[in-house]
């Protein structure tokens, strides 16, 4: 690692500015886990295919394994460690716990970060591939089980806890909008 192939960057992780020196090859996932000790974000495939490393980047979900840390300079990162507030679990976390939305738990941090973004994207009126009519005149789609399955399809669960994950996201959606 030389000066031309590394950089000093600041990431705003779960509300805290964190300054670190990274080799340009370092992904955001490795920066979080190996440099900052935030091991809640999991490494599954490391190729953007499984969603285990999902975090929120400036409030939008992203896979941290394909995001170069140097290119995240100055941006806000929310990991699973930053989802609960003041010791209180987020309604999405509560729903996963209550409805058993996991088995081994390895994909769960990514599932929960993804679900948080699904609720925001749906509230913003974004259509999905499951939306029958994408035209704005058709109005925002209801968050049906089919919509949840499609919107969560970037998060694989090899224990196949999918039915409970869908129920958890649906319950969280009701809790958040109530």
């Amino acid at each position: 690692m030389t000066a031309s192939t590394s950089s000093v960057i600041t990431l705003h992780v779960n509300g805290e500015p964190r300054t670190l020196t990274v080799d340009h090859r370092t992904t955001l996932l490795d920066a979080l886990r190996e440099h900052l000790g935030l091991t809640g974000t999991k490494k599954g495939c490391d190729h953007g295919q499984c969603g285990a490393c999902t975090v929120l980047l400036d409030g939008r979900r992203a896979v941290a394994c394909l995001q170069l840390a140097v290119a995240a300079e100055g941006r806000a990162v929310t990991t699973i460690e930053g989802v609960a507030e003041d010791g209180r679990l987020h309604p999405v976390q509560e729903a996963f716990l209550e409805l058993d939305g996991y088995q081994c738990g390895y994909c769960t941090p990514g599932q929960i970060c993804s679900a948080l973004a699904v609720l925001d994207e749906h509230a913003a009126g974004w259509p999905s591939a499951a939306t029958a009519d994408v035209r704005p005149e058709a109005g925002p789609p209801a968050l049906t089980d089919d919509e949840i399955r499609e919107r969560m399809s970037g998060n694989l669960c090899r224990c196949s806890a999918y039915p409970a994950i869908v129920r958890a996201v649906a319950q969280a959606a009701k809790a958040v909008s109530a």
């Binding site: 980047l57 979900r61 992203a62 896979v63 699904v118 999905s128 994408v134 035209r135 005149e137």
Partner: peptide
Amino acid sequence: RRYPALAQAVLAGASGQLRNM
């Protein structure tokens, strides 16, 4: 509204995470 097949094509690709990036 004007090119719905384009919106559908983009939504048919990848995942929500990847489409954000």
